[in-house]
């Protein structure tokens, strides 16, 4: 739990990108404790670059980034921002149980030479229970369904006792039963006061969980408001179009350049 009432995330005209390319710029965003923020936007709009920037995985190229009240570079207690990556990062080259994966979330909390103690094991068990996988703690992760694997990754982040969970596309490619269980898990976490920043394409599955919606397009924020305001925004901007954010934001892309040996590529509308 946050000790001060400083915002969890405080961005002032922040820019993020990779070595020679700025992907996201001019972002002002403040997330406070208790908020559940959905970050929407089409592919390539910079959502992932932004959240990866918060986590220190992409370079900060300008502006001010404060996490939990301190500049990002001075944040040493990294697990206070709990990262839940996309599922494909759960490598399946070797066997590993749910408990073994979740135990990784405890590692930053003890020095390298110290073996896991009783507290660590208790926290791991509680984190697995919190995502509803207690009866599968000793199963191999590779044998679980896609949605169950996402929940393993959530439990791993929870084991680090984060103030804020940052999730990258938690519901993408997950079957219906798992999506319900996943949404239930997120609802429980929200009810317990867990703050979350959720990158997603599918607002439907999370509609009753999120308290605020932020949209990105082409590296900038272009909407920030409550779910009802978002509905009004959609109605105003895309009459007759569907309910999905992707449906009306068409990124302008240059036509692909191809040589004589390139197969013709599909151009996004």
């Amino acid at each position: 739990m946050p000790v001060s009432d400083a915002p969890l995330i405080d961005l002032r005209s922040a820019a993020f990108g990779y070595a020679d390319r700025t992907v996201v710029s001019g972002v002002d965003l403040t997330v406070r404790a208790g908020e559940v923020v959905a970050l929407l936007g089409p592919n390539g709009s910079g959502k992932s670059t932004l959240v990866r920037g918060l986590l220190g995985l992409t370079e900060q190229q300008g502006g001010e980034v404060r996490l939990l009240g301190v500049p990002r570079a001075e944040l040493h207690d990294h697990t206070r921002i709990g990262y839940v990556p996309q599922r494909h990062s759960l490598s399946a080259t070797v066997r590993a149980t749910v408990a073994e994966i979740v135990a990784v979330g405890r590692l930053p909390h003890r020095p390298w030479w110290k073996p896991a103690g009783r507290t660590d094991r208790d926290v791991v068990a509680a984190s697995i229970a919190a995502v509803g996988l207690a009866d599968r703690a000793d199963e191999e992760v590779a044998s679980l369904s896609g949605g169950q694997q996402r929940r393993v990754l959530i439990a791993r982040a929870l084991a680090g006792h984060p103030d804020l969970l940052v999730m990258d596309e938690p519901t993408a490619g997950v079957d219906r039963a798992s999506q319900d269980a996943l949404a239930a898990t997120l609802r429980d976490l929200a009810a317990d006061g867990t703050s979350m920043l959720i990158v997603t394409h599918e607002l439907d599955a999370l509609r009753d969980v999120v308290s605020r919606i932020v949209c990105m397009d082409d590296g900038h924020l272009d909407f920030d408001g409550t779910p009802p305001q978002y509905a009004a925004h959609l109605a105003a901007h895309a009459p007759g179009a569907g309910h999905h954010h992707d449906d009306h934001h068409h990124p302008t892309r240059p036509a692909p350049v191809g040589g004589p040996f390139d197969a013709p590529r599909e151009v996004h509308p």
């Binding site: 220190g56 995985l57 990262y83 990556p85 990062s89 490598s91 990784v104 590692l107």
Partner: peptide, 22 residues
């Protein structure tokens, strides 16, 4: 033996390990 969990963490998900400050 001592670093088994840490080697496991880094090999299993390098990006997560980085974000967690390992």
């Amino acid at each position: 033996t001592v670093l088994r969990q840490r080697f496991f963490a880094v090999a299993n998900d390098e990006e997560y390990a980085r974000s967690a400050g390992l």
